[in-house]
C-alpha cells in the first residue's frame, strides 16, 4: 500500500496510463462486455432477449480466450518442449 499510494495520487485519469501491468488479463472482462453490448445491439433479432444474449456472448468470448490461452500454453510449453 505504501508503494501504491504515491502512484495513485500522481495518476491523472485520461492523461496517464493505468498501472495494471501485472493484472492486465483482467481487462479482458470489460473489453468482452463492451464488444458484446455493441455487437448484440446490431445482431439481435428480438430485443427482448438483448441482455441475456449480451451475457452469453461475454461469457463465450472469455471462455474462448481462456481456451486459446490454454492451447497456446500446451503447444509452447508441453508439445514444443517434448519435441526438442
Amino acid at each position: 500500500m505504501s508503494t501504491l499510494l504515491p502512484a495513485l495520487l500522481a495518476w491523472r485519469p485520461f492523461l496517464d496510463p493505468i498501472d495494471i501491468h501485472t493484472g492486465w488479463y483482467v481487462l479482458l472482462v470489460p473489453l468482452a462486455l463492451f464488444i458484446a453490448i455493441a455487437y448484440k445491439a446490431v445482431r439481435t433479432k428480438n430485443m427482448d432477449r438483448y441482455y441475456r444474449e449480451v451475457g452469453v456472448m461475454t461469457v463465450q468470448i472469455i471462455a474462448l480466450m481462456i481456451g486459446l490461452a490454454a492451447a497456446s500454453f500446451l503447444i509452447v510449453e508441453v508439445f514444443a518442449r517434448a519435441a526438442e
Binding site: F14, L15, D16, I35, A36, Y39, K40
Partner: peptide
C-alpha cells in the same frame, strides 16, 4: 431506439475504456 442506445453504449464505452486505460496514447 434500443438498438441505437446499445450501439452508443458499446462503442463509446469501448472508446472511453481505451482512453481511460492508456490515456491519449
Amino acid at each position: 431506439t434500443k438498438r441505437g442506445a446499445g450501439v452508443c453504449a458499446g462503442v463509446l464505452g469501448l472508446f472511453v475504456f481505451g482512453l481511460f486505460l492508456a490515456g491519449p496514447t
